[in-house]
Design a protein around this nucleic acid. Structure first.
Lengths: 123, 123
DNA sequence: AGTTTTTGTAACAGTATCAATCACGATTAC
DNA sequence: GTAATCGTGATTGATACTGTTACAAAAACT
């Protein structure tokens, strides 16, 4: 997948020890984010849509963890209480900042570096 | 809870619109972390174990989200493949760094500031 | 053309997780 | 002693995710 050769979902599934459909679901999300492009039919598979040096872990994270709402609590707090009414926007702001810091770190690591680290680990 | 008065789980549950038992379980985790102390019996409840200016959101986050293992994937990857064998420790390292960055931001905000922000929001 | 390989997606069962709830013992104020 | 309150175990229901089967669509190869 790093080079030109398309990799099949079956191959990845064997490597990650899971089902090909699960892999295809994830690849579908990555494709929607423009990170990989999939080729159907015989001799098909998936390839990176751009060089691994231009794909950060933040890109992958965003593509896979879509998470629409902040989802602080499924139940809305009591709006009659001043605390219940005010806590939501305050916490959302802070959590957003913290999440942004996490993403900033993930943005500094490129997929190519991960691959290099794995190569180094494997000797 | 900020002042001396103990707050009951029933009161909090009414404010957050959930069940008292759910609140008590969370307070139990906070008590184990030494952030609050609970008083049983009549006229009981929970109070902060130390001033709100000395409790950061990181403390709370750590107390509530215990999360033992990194839990990258329930299924262990194929150890025969060099990628499957090497990817786990590499990703764990990076994710740990990102998580640390998130905690660092949460550590800069104290509970007292959150309370002040809520007071300001509520006018 | 027809066969084979492969993706994309729907459908479904099994499982894990979590909130909510009930229940009950332990503890403390009055 | 009575009432209030925490602590915790057990149960139920909702939600989500994984794993799996199935099948249509697409593309290569003969």
């Amino acid at each position: 997948m790093g080079d030109g050769q398309p990799v099949t979902s079956d191959w990845i599934a064997g490597s990650v020890n899971t089902n090909p459909v699960v892999v295809r679901r994830l690849l579908s999300a990555l494709a929607k984010a423009g990170l990989v492009s999939s080729i159907r039919g015989s001799a098909g598979g998936s390839v990176l849509a751009r060089p691994a040096g231009q794909i950060s872990l933040a890109h992958i994270h965003r593509a896979v963890d879509e998470e629409e709402g902040p989802a602080l609590h499924n139940q809305t707090p009591n709006q009659a209480c001043p605390v219940g009414r005010g806590i939501q926007p305050v916490l959302v702001r802070i959590i957003d900042r913290a999440e942004a810091a996490k993403e900033a770190v993930l943005a500094t690591t490129m997929l190519s570096e991960v691959v290099a680290a794995i190569r180094a680990e494997a000797g």
